[in-house]
Design a protein around this nucleic acid. Structure first.
Length: 109
DNA sequence: TACCTGACGGGCC
DNA sequence: GGGCCCGCCAGGT
């Protein structure tokens, strides 16, 4: 596992309860602005990672749960978000911009 | 070994 | 304002 992957997982784990972020925001915080897909791919490998990565808090820039299909059937992405008080309608996070957690701002990088 | 796809994003037409 | 194309890295076929 590369440091980049570890860095991505670390940031995702830093996302506060009830907050969400986007792939692009994470990528940008890592300095790989154009590598948003790379972040998504890292999530793909985040299934069996040690401290468990709350990938359900990571969505695309539109706030849509594009990756919910990749979650285990036992823990639907939408259900996990709703458990945190996040309202999800039509695979889209309501008030996404309000719930958005910007790593660049919060971490003051 | 080489090409294509994949949980995205931003820029250009 | 909306749609299309290109760029990012890595893994799978």
């Amino acid at each position: 596992m590369n440091q980049i992957y570890n860095a991505i997982y670390d940031i995702v784990r830093l996302i506060p309860y009830g907050r969400v972020t986007s792939y692009g925001a994470i990528a940008k915080s890592l300095g790989v602005g154009g590598g948003a897909r790379f972040v998504g791919w890292a999530m793909n490998a985040a299934h069996g990672v040690h401290p468990a990565v709350p990938a359900h808090r990571v969505v695309n820039r539109n706030g849509m749960l594009t990756g919910k299909h990749h979650f285990p059937a036992v823990a639907p992405m939408q259900k996990l978000l709703e458990e945190e008080g996040i309202v999800v309608i039509d695979d889209k996070i309501v008030d996404f911009e309000h719930l958005f957690w910007n790593p660049l701002t919060e971490l003051e990088l």
